[in-house]
Design a protein around this nucleic acid. Structure first.
Lengths: 102, 102
DNA sequence: TAAATAGGTTTGTAGTACAAACTAGTTTGC
DNA sequence: GCAAACTAGTTTGTACTACAAACCTATTTA
């Protein structure tokens, strides 16, 4: 164990946070998801989800579009190219860690 | 993606934190390590390492013994059975996630 | 005996996740 | 027609967190 594991220290904390990892994973597979779908799927409270989405949006990882479904507000989220890239990089780093220390 | 990934929300945050994941990984392989070895290996500042070790100790994941090497203080850390178990569980959960979403 | 070094710990700060409380609009009950 | 309950979120308050800078105590060196 004189291996270089310090790469862990460079993990993207935005994605490392479990709730956001969950969100990004779902978006990565779904191409597009609305707020309530995400909430159910991820098992988060509205407030929590809202806050996490804002962070992902600020980082440019997620694009958020507010429209209407009939007369009710509808928030649709997509992973951006940047977000997809960050997600992929995170997975690679984590898999690297798992492999090295398996 | 209607899979159950919500398990991510149950990740042990104590181990999920990259710096501590690093520490625990090193301890898991080394059986015993002193403070400065850990510091070098993990690439952490003393203050940061000290704080993380205290947390791991409070959780019962790490046993810390303070002795002397000659006349200088020497802090030796070992992973406890509880810590090893938590580490293994964390790895399993993370690997499960990686596999499910590969 | 002053200054530097070793091996840490404590403290201050900025940032974080989370749920409770709130907002703005819509539908339902009476 | 208007109050109550619901929908779809956002904002706010709180308690926790990671981190490095400053500190501490003892030892070694100049």
């Amino acid at each position: 164990m004189s291996d270089d594991l310090r790469g862990l220290n460079d993990l993207d904390r935005l994605i490392h946070e479990p709730a956001r990892l969950l969100i990004v994973t779902i978006l990565s597979a779904a191409a597009s998801a609305d707020f309530l779908f995400l909430q159910r799927e991820a098992g988060l409270t509205k407030g929590n989800l809202s806050a996490h989405l804002s962070k992902l949006e600020e980082a440019g990882y997620v694009k958020i579009e507010k429209t209407f479904k009939g007369k009710l507000p509808l928030t649709v989220c997509k992973l951006t190219a940047k977000g997809q890239k960050a997600y992929t990089a995170y997975r690679q780093q984590m898999q690297m860690f798992m492999d090295k220390t398996g």
